[in-house]
Amino acid sequence: MPQPLNTFGDAMTTDVLIEHRREIADLKQRIKNRQLQVFGLFATPIILVAELLAWASLKILFWLRSDTPSAINEINGGIALFLGLAVVVQLVAEFSEEFDVWRDRKTSVRELKLKLSLAEERHILEARRRTPPASDRQASYKERLPGEIMRLRQESQHYRRVHLLMQWLLFVSSAAISAVTAWYDPPQPAKGALIGLGFTVTVITAAAGYFKPRERAFNLQQTADSIEQHATALELGIAPYNATEEAKNLELFATTVEGLRAEQRMREQQLDQPQQGQQQVI
């Protein structure tokens, strides 16, 4: 008879690991928020002082013996007032005991990073202690693949749209250059339009050659199709996943998919390299 599954223990393991991930994600967000808060505390007074100095410099350089225009005074006064209010609000949020607005006030970013390191270490130790068998991990790996396939296809569609947009802009700009040149003879009234269209054609051509959105879209779509093909073969139990033992099929499937993902990353790296570097790699 098959052994009963320890569903209670599995559920506890899952809940513990999820809780660790939530704690890590929360600390990462808190670190980002705290970095912005500390930046505002230090940067806002500096910007306020710089703005006041700039206001005074304008007065000394241009209107030393006369009155400063009211528009200049209004603009600089409004900016100074806004920055002053921002300084006061941030100081109150940081040091006031009555207003608990900031979650990590009076806490350094270094302390939060230390908490994050400890949380990640606890997560690693807990995951190592509660690591399920390889067959279970391979089965869960198979269940995560639909999301990976969807991500690859979305990125492929994004690069395909970028490629199509660049091509249409290139077509329209190239045709417009000929049309404007033929319409104006000599082309003096449309000189600015011709310069702009020629600039657009040059930029689009250079961007398409450098970023290669068509090649990226093709590679992503090819990887997604290959992974989906292997997932379907595993689901149907056909070659090469027709072994009698499910564990062997899962192991072969995980190895194959990781190989496909490694090939995709290598192709992305080759596209990011200059043309000379690509020829050396090839």
Score class of each variant (00 low, 15 high):
27 L>F: 05
29 Q>H: 14
79 I>Y: 07
85 L>Q: 10
52 L>H: 05
22 R>S: 13
73 N>E: 11
48 L>H: 07
75 I>D: 10
28 K>E: 15
37 Q>M: 07
98 E>I: 10
23 E>H: 05
9 G>K: 01
19 E>H: 09
53 L>H: 00
42 F>R: 11
102 W>M: 07
26 D>T: 08
64 L>V: 04
42 F>Q: 13
32 K>I: 10
50 A>G: 08
53 L>A: 12
89 V>R: 06
9 G>C: 00
25 A>S: 13
14 T>D: 12
41 L>V: 03
26 D>R: 03
78 G>H: 02
91 L>C: 13
108 S>C: 01
10 D>Q: 12
31 I>V: 09
42 F>E: 13
11 A>V: 04
34 R>T: 00
9 G>E: 11
68 T>M: 14
54 A>L: 12
92 V>K: 06
79 I>N: 01
44 T>N: 05
93 A>P: 02
79 I>Q: 02
62 F>Y: 15
75 I>E: 13
43 A>Y: 14
107 T>N: 08
89 V>M: 10
71 A>T: 05
73 N>S: 09
102 W>A: 03
20 H>K: 07
93 A>R: 04
55 W>M: 12
71 A>S: 09
77 G>P: 01
84 G>A: 12
63 W>K: 05
15 D>C: 08
86 A>C: 13
99 F>R: 02
50 A>Y: 03
52 L>R: 02
49 V>M: 04
25 A>I: 06
46 I>L: 15
13 T>Q: 11
83 L>F: 11
43 A>T: 13
76 N>F: 15
101 V>S: 08
15 D>V: 06
62 F>Q: 08
19 E>D: 14
54 A>K: 00
42 F>S: 10
26 D>K: 03
30 R>S: 11
96 S>R: 01
78 G>R: 00
70 S>Q: 15
19 E>K: 09
13 T>G: 08
18 I>P: 11
76 N>V: 11
41 L>S: 02
28 K>C: 09
58 L>E: 05
11 A>K: 09
65 R>Y: 09
24 I>F: 06
57 S>T: 09
66 S>I: 04
66 S>V: 02
89 V>G: 02
63 W>C: 06
28 K>G: 08
102 W>F: 14
63 W>T: 02
105 R>D: 03
10 D>V: 08
12 M>A: 14
14 T>H: 13
93 A>V: 13
15 D>F: 14
105 R>M: 04
100 D>E: 15
50 A>Q: 03
71 A>C: 08
89 V>Q: 02
88 V>I: 13
13 T>H: 13
34 R>I: 01
21 R>N: 15
